[in-house]
């Protein structure tokens, strides 16, 4: 706990403060190696966009960092702690400090939106019901939903509302870092643009660090501070969007200079 207070206390935040550090990570299923000695750093306060071929291991990397997929070798350090060396209570302390937005939302279908948001609160904190209600509705409003969405079941929500409600649940415990798995997929361009905006606002309001797996070229241009590209099981390039555009790697050229990419750029 003390270490955390020490880090956050500096008002002039060090931009190079590493929150998550992945070293030499190898993950595979059977004979297939998906991630091959991958290295990646995520810095405090940034929005990192993560791109890569479909089926190339973007989700696998996210799930490995979150501990959902076992790794073959390498280390994952979160908040300066190696996840392998933590005991159960230390690990759950780490898990309380990250929020995850799954691609399909993964809201619990038998609970209302309000109960979904209160679920992590109820499990981790001792709070009065009135405070939990206030917190839940504050989060609902922060993600841009109307209050009456709180009493709805996930099956009564539209796709965009599900994403927002799931984001509210991911933010329930005020995490330091937010993982987003294709947050704008399945949303119309206006909805996707609003969602990007929302992520940017929340990131500034709450001082979040965001790790975003995405295919949305608009999101990459508008909200991401930095982009990392995955190919052949490795991070082949990282940097700002300009760096990506100038890269000579064939896949990156195809990705950032393809027809759709040109269309996005010509709008600007």
């Amino acid at each position: 706990m003390d270490a955390i207070v020490g880090q956050e206390d500096t008002d002039a935040e060090d931009k190079r403060d590493v929150l998550i550090s992945v070293r030499d990570l190898v993950v595979g299923f059977g004979d297939r190696t998906i991630l091959n000695h991958l290295n990646l750093d995520i810095y405090r306060g940034e929005i990192l966009g993560f791109v890569g071929t479909s089926g190339g291991g973007k989700s696998v990397l996210t799930r490995t960092i979150l501990g959902l997929v076992p790794k073959q070798s390498g280390t994952v350090e979160v908040f300066g702690q190696d996840l392998d060396t933590l005991n159960e209570s230390q690990r759950s302390a780490v898990e309380r400090r990250w929020g995850v937005l799954f691609q399909q939302g993964a809201l619990f279908s038998s609970l209302t939106v309000k109960q979904n948001i209160q679920f992590p609160l109820r499990e981790n904190l001792k709070l009065s019901q009135s405070l939990m209600d206030d917190i839940a509705y504050a989060k609902i409003e922060m993600v841009g939903l109307k209050c009456d969405a709180g009493e709805k079941l996930p099956s009564e929500l539209s796709g965009g509302m599900i994403k927002r409600a799931a984001l509210a649940r991911a933010l329930a415990l005020d995490p330091d870092i937010l993982f987003l798995d294709e947050p704008t997929s399945g949303l119309d361009p206006i909805g996707a643009g609003d969602f990007d905006e929302l992520i940017r606002t929340l990131q500034q309001t709450l001082g979040l660090t965001v790790f975003m797996v995405t295919h949305d070229l608009d999101s990459l241009h508008t909200v991401c501070d930095r982009i990392a590209a995955l190919a052949d099981g490795k991070v082949i390039a990282q940097g700002t969007i300009e760096t990506m555009m100038e890269s000579h790697h064939p896949w990156l050229r195809a990705y950032f200079h393809g027809t759709r990419a040109r269309a996005v750029r010509s709008e600007r």
Binding site: T112, Y137, C147, G150
Partner: peptide, 14 residues
Amino acid sequence: EMSRTGLEPHPTPR
């Protein structure tokens, strides 16, 4: 941000 939230009454629970 907080001063903008919670102005509407909560909907009645199910």
